[in-house]
């Protein structure tokens, strides 16, 4: 499986007391997120809501692509890809 990097915002990185850049091996975007939560179960409640979907104001980028625009969360990954978790910020 290709190795990718999951980038977390600092507020979540402190929860798991680890680097904000986490190497993960996974075939798909969804697989990478599942592997991330398997390794760090504490992140599950912060990324996903009660329906199992990403929380409404959590953004997830696959390289430069907002994953909300993807047809499927099971998009394939390539070695060296970056998955970035961000807080949706709108307005001030």
């Amino acid at each position: 499986m290709p190795q990718v990097t999951v980038q977390l915002p600092s507020i979540l990185g402190r929860i798991i007391d680890e680097s904000r850049a986490i190497p993960i091996e996974a075939d798909s975007l969804g697989g990478a997120l599942r592997a991330l939560v398997d390794r760090h179960p504490a992140l599950g409640v912060h990324l996903f809501d009660e329906t199992g979907n990403l929380r409404q104001h959590v953004l997830c980028f696959h390289n430069q692509t907002n994953t909300r625009w993807l047809d499927s969360i099971e998009a394939p990954l390539a070695k060296g890809d970056t998955i970035t978790i961000l807080q949706a910020v709108s307005g001030g």
């Binding site: 409640v45 009660e50 199992g52 807080q87 949706a88």
Partner: peptide
């Protein structure tokens, strides 16, 4: 709690080292 990242419960014996409780209160789907 966070408007973005949801809620959680944490525990510590010394106020320095904290652990998030994995099976905290949660509503079933």
């Amino acid at each position: 709690a966070s408007d973005v990242y949801g809620q959680a419960l944490h525990v510590s014996e010394d106020l320095d080292n904290w652990r998030q409780i994995e099976n905290g209160p949660a509503w079933a789907k």
